[in-house]
């Protein structure tokens, strides 16, 4: 796997796969009215029994998938930049691809039953996130200067593996919500909607930290760079308040804010594409600027989290005690 040509191919495949998957995730969600034939059919007796939990679960799958797609593309680019020096650097590509496939499967699955393979994959993703964070911490710490700004800016990004961890957690939550067709949806004995809202809020804060760090590296030279460090923390606060607040609230503003964050996440790709074009040689010099310019696949992780927030809010609406 050391030959440059193969590394190029792997990185390109990773980016392409994540793009395609993201597109199909989003298109499958927009085709809500008439489910396409290839969707896994749900047994009739359950279809009507608890559609809200399945709906919420599928939305969580979609959120997890969006995050996984972002991780797949981002780790492809960044680990290609790192020349896949360590074989372990292929892991997030494999795991996020698997998580993505699982999430596609989950998004299409109408059955109110947890799926063992999905569960296992999501747990694997979460574990990968944890181990990856450890790797990245180790990588930064061992560089000359240790945990200095230089190494935090340009070493392995400490926060990045958290995205696959979050993807795994949301997926895991999705399975718990999906199987809760008779009881109240709970996760580790906590009300599921609130738990997911809290996890998502924390994820938003973490991702804000990552964006804040990298935008600080870019000296906030463009005022729009302030958006991902101001809008998401407000979203996080709204989600936290939803998680901690009493039942029966509609959270209209919070849901509106989540949609705003989703839009911001996808618009971020456009902003980053503009950023790439502002580097020397612009897109003609893509082989350098994709790597040195702002990371194109990073912003959609905000969208993934915001989608999870919407799912949590939807669940709380359907199950006031969830």
């Amino acid at each position: 796997m050391n030959r440059p040509a193969e590394r190029d191919l792997i990185a390109m495949a990773g980016i392409a796969a994540s793009g395609l998957a993201l597109a199909s995730l989003l298109s499958s969600s927009s085709a809500r009215v008439r489910p396409p034939r290839w969707r896994l059919a749900a047994p009739g007796r359950n279809r009507s029994s608890n559609p809200e939990t399945v709906k919420a679960a599928r939305r969580l799958n979609r959120a997890a998938g969006t995050l996984a797609a972002s991780v797949l593309a981002d780790s492809s680019v960044e680990h290609y930049r790192g020349s896949f020096k360590n074989k372990a650097m292929y892991t997030p590509l494999l795991v996020s691809a698997l998580t993505l496939a699982t999430s596609l499967h989950g998004t299409a699955d109408m059955r109110p039953l947890a799926h063992k393979a999905r569960d296992a994959t999501y747990l694997l993703a979460a574990a990968t996130g944890l181990v990856g964070s450890g790797f990245h911490l180790y990588n930064v710490g061992k560089r000359v200067g240790g945990f200095s700004w230089q190494n935090v800016f340009y070493g392995a990004p400490i926060g990045a593996p958290m995205a696959i961890l979050l993807s795994g957690l949301l997926g895991f939550c999705s399975e718990r919500v999906r199987e809760a067709h008779r009881t109240r949806p709970r996760i580790f004995r906590l009300p599921a909607g609130r738990a997911i809202a809290a996890v998502t809020g924390a994820g938003l804060l973490g991702t804000t930290g990552e964006a804040g760090l990298l935008h600080f590296r870019g000296a906030y030279h463009n005022p729009f760079m302030l958006l991902p460090v101001t809008l998401p923390p407000i979203g996080a606060a709204l989600l936290m308040s939803a998680a901690g607040g009493g039942p029966g609230r509609t959270h209209r503003f919070t849901r509106w804010w989540m949609r705003l964050l989703t839009g911001m996440g996808f618009a971020g790709v456009g902003f980053h594409a503009y950023g790439v074009s502002r580097n020397m040689g612009g897109w003609r010099n893509w082989s350098q600027n994709i790597l040195n310019g702002p990371p194109l696949p990073a912003p959609p992780s905000f969208a993934g989290l915001a989608l999870a927030g919407l799912a949590a809010l939807g669940l709380m609406k359907a199950h006031p005690d969830a």
């Binding site: 440059p4 190029d8 930049r81 020349s83 020397m280 040689g281 003609r284 010099n285 082989s287 350098q288 790597l291 040195n292």
Partner: peptide, 15 residues
Amino acid sequence: SPRGYVRLDLDERDP
């Protein structure tokens, strides 16, 4: 120019 380098550290090399 316009393309410079991406991988700058010890034992790092661009394609």
